[in-house]
Amino acid sequence: MNDEEMTGCSDKERQLERLRSIMHRLRAPGGCPWDAEQTHESLIPNLIEEAYETVDTLRRGDRDHLKEELGDLLLQVVFHSELAAEDGVFDLDEVARGICDKLVRRHPHVFGDSAVATTDGVLQQWDEIKRAEKGEGGKPYLHGVGHGLPALLRAAKLQKKAAKVGFDWPDEAGVIGKVREEVDEFASADSPEAAAEELGDLLFSVVNLARFRGLDPEVVMAAANEKFQRRFAAMESRLAAAGLSLAEADAAQMDAAWEDAKR
Rank of each mutant, 00 (worst) to 15 (best):
A241F: 02
N2H: 09
D171G: 11
D35C: 09
G88M: 09
H107N: 14
L73G: 11
P45S: 02
T118Y: 08
C9S: 12
L244A: 05
C100I: 04
K134N: 13
G98S: 12
G61C: 12
L16S: 13
A195N: 02
M23G: 00
F90E: 00
G148C: 10
G138M: 01
W34K: 04
E172M: 10
D171P: 07
K130W: 10
E41P: 08
T57S: 05
M6R: 15
D64N: 03
D171Y: 12
F79I: 00
E133M: 12
A222W: 10
N208T: 14
A163R: 12
R230K: 12
R14E: 15
A233T: 07
E41G: 11
A240R: 15
A240S: 15
C9N: 15
E197M: 02
S191F: 05
R63M: 00
G146P: 06
I129R: 13
E5H: 13
A36T: 12
I176S: 07
S114E: 03
V104W: 08
L149S: 10
W126N: 04
K130M: 09
K134M: 14
E197L: 02
G174F: 13
S188N: 07
G8N: 14
E4A: 15
A162L: 11
G177Q: 04
V145H: 01
D91S: 02
L152V: 06
K134W: 11
A223R: 11
P45K: 02
I44Y: 13
R131N: 03
E17I: 11
E4P: 03
D93F: 01
V110D: 09
E5L: 15
H147Y: 11
K178C: 08
R131M: 03
V179I: 07
W126T: 02
K262F: 04
R105G: 06
Y52E: 14
G71D: 13
Q229V: 08
L158Y: 05
Q229D: 11
A242L: 07
V145R: 02
D168W: 05
A173L: 07
E49I: 07
G137M: 03
R106F: 14
K102L: 15
V116S: 07
P29Q: 08
Q76G: 14
F79T: 06
V55I: 13
A162F: 06
N225Q: 12
P29D: 13
A151E: 09
L153Q: 10
I22L: 10
N208S: 14
S205T: 13
Q125D: 03
Q76T: 15
L199S: 03
M23P: 00
V78M: 05
L149T: 07
A96V: 07
E248V: 01
P170A: 04
L158M: 14
M221C: 07
A162Y: 03
Y141S: 00
M235P: 00
C32Y: 01
P170R: 07
K12P: 15
L58M: 13
W34I: 13
T39P: 11
A194M: 05
H147P: 00
K160P: 00
F204Q: 02
G135E: 04
G148H: 08
L73E: 10
A194G: 02
F228N: 11
R263I: 04
S205C: 11
G148N: 10
L26I: 07
L83C: 05
A36H: 09
A194K: 03
V95T: 01
E136P: 02
D168G: 09
K161H: 06
E37F: 02
